[in-house]
């Protein structure tokens, strides 16, 4: 257990070692470590930010969807209303047409009845004349009695 020159040598070696570590090893490695720590921290912060953004976007999407649904409902309502209106209008037009057709038919019927009545009246007039002929047993001049006969026919 003697202390000798070795001790000085070891001291010098130690000093060199410490100097080397301080100068060449520590700064580089520590720099890398610290930079990585910063990167990791930034990455985590970015992830956090992205998560928050995603949440925001989700909320926005929900609002949009709600609005779209509302709009769709409105459109459907409007379409239904419009459909009803069209139906109503068509119904009214159809009714009008029916009424018109009915009126026309009634007119026709009326005119046909009129014509039939007139024919009937003429035929009745003729029949009456013939009957009268038979009754009178003589021929009445239709031309001479035309005015009379017409009057008769009109009276029937």
């Amino acid at each position: 257990m003697e202390i000798n020159m070795t001790f000085l040598g070891q001291m010098i070696s130690f000093a060199i070692l410490v100097w080397f570590t301080t100068k060449f090893i520590w700064p580089q490695l520590n720099g890398a470590i610290e930079e990585r720590q910063k990167k990791v921290a930034e990455g985590l912060a970015a992830a956090e930010r992205a998560r928050a953004e995603l949440k925001d976007a989700d909320a926005k999407v929900a609002v949009e969807i709600k609005q779209a649904r509302l709009q769709a409902t409105e459109i459907i309502d409007k379409a239904q209303q419009q459909g009803n209106q069209i139906l109503e209008k068509a119904r009214a037009e159809a009714t009008n047409e029916i009424n018109r057709l009915k009126a026309q038919a009634q007119d026709e019927i009326a005119s046909m009845a009129q014509r039939a009545r007139e024919q009937l009246r003429e035929q009745v007039g003729a029949l009456a004349v013939r009957g009268a002929e038979k009754i009178v047993q003589r021929e009445i001049d239709p031309a001479a009695h035309k005015a009379l006969l017409d009057q008769l026919a009109a009276e029937i």
Partner: peptide, 21 residues
């Protein structure tokens, strides 16, 4: 041993990256 330590650590310190180690 001191030199071995220096060399060992220095080699990694020299090409130390902050990326994936």
């Amino acid at each position: 041993l001191g030199a071995a330590f220096c060399l060992w650590f220095w080699l990694f310190a020299r090409k130390a990256t902050s990326g994936v180690p």
